[in-house]
Design a binder for these strands. Structure first.
Length: 253
DNA sequence: ATGGCATAATCCTTATGA
């Protein structure tokens, strides 16, 4: 089974890239973030035409998440249950017996800001919810744009901002890991300076000035079967790219 | 010291991203 995640930064603009990437990679599940569109604008027909169903949780202008799959998407849940939030950042579905969650974590803007406090509140609510989910879903995948670089090696050495690398954010990431969820990328040898996001400015991609903030975390029941985890930089080289690259994991069930 | 790019929504400027 192959599961991937991709922050597309506007599905309207990026739909051709998504369609091409699906055709080349045929994932069993593709988690998308930052759709930046309302549900009524979601390209259902275009994706059906390439053999993919979709569950989506959209919002005008900001946020918005989806899961695409050639197989039926069952038991769809939108948003974190019990957490009052206007922002559309979560969708979950069961695909082939695997609970798949597409998550767009808050950016946080700046350490100490109101948005940073919201990021930490949101992370705490997510962790509480997943603790319960894991009781009923042994096979679980949390994939998305975490907006956290979990270790120093996940950020370019010249990254001078605190946001995405601060201690409170990394502590919150560790709390997710403490549920038993494993950052699959680090289960395998990887190239040095592996990142999944590069700023549009300053020639950041050319200089590989990036952050690894897009992650796939898997439950213990799936971890042993994991065969690979890779970041695909090819779509970042296209005209009008997303600033994020897709991340994929392959595992045996 | 600042903003540098991209997107979407008020439009020709602003909010947000990371």
């Amino acid at each position: 089974m192959k599961i991937a995640t991709w922050n597309v930064n506007s599905l309207k603009v990026r739909l051709p890239h998504v369609i091409d990437w699906i055709a080349a990679n045929r994932p069993d599940a593709l988690c998308l973030q930052e759709l930046k569109m309302e549900d009524k604008a979601f390209p259902v027909a275009e994706l059906e035409a390439v053999g993919y169903h979709a569950a989506f949780n959209g919002q005008k202008t900001y946020n918005g998440v989806a899961i695409l799959s050639p197989a039926p998407l069952e038991a769809v849940v939108r948003d974190i249950p019990g957490f009052a939030d206007e922002q559309k950042r979560i969708i979950a579905a069961t695909i082939g017996g695997v609970r798949v969650i597409s998550a767009y974590f808050p950016n946080g803007q700046a350490v100490g800001s109101d948005k940073f406090a919201y990021k930490l509140r949101w992370l705490a609510a997510l962790t509480d919810w997943l603790r319960e989910e894991l009781k009923t879903h042994e096979r679980l995948v949390l994939a998305g744009d975490f907006n956290i670089a979990p270790e120093d090696r996940d950020a370019h050495p010249d990254w001078k901002e605190e946001i995405h690398v601060s201690a409170p954010e990394r502590t919150a990431f560790a709390a997710l890991a403490a549920l038993g969820l494993r950052d699959v990328f680090r289960q395998f040898d990887q190239p040095e300076s592996s990142y999944s996001w590069w700023d549009y400015r300053m020639g950041a991609f050319r200089r590989n000035f990036g952050l690894r903030i897009d992650h796939i975390l898997v439950s213990p029941a799936l971890c042993a079967g994991c065969r690979s985890c890779t970041i695909d930089k090819t779509p970042r080289k296209l005209e009008r790219p997303s600033d994020h690259a897709p991340v994929s994991v392959e595992f045996d069930l």
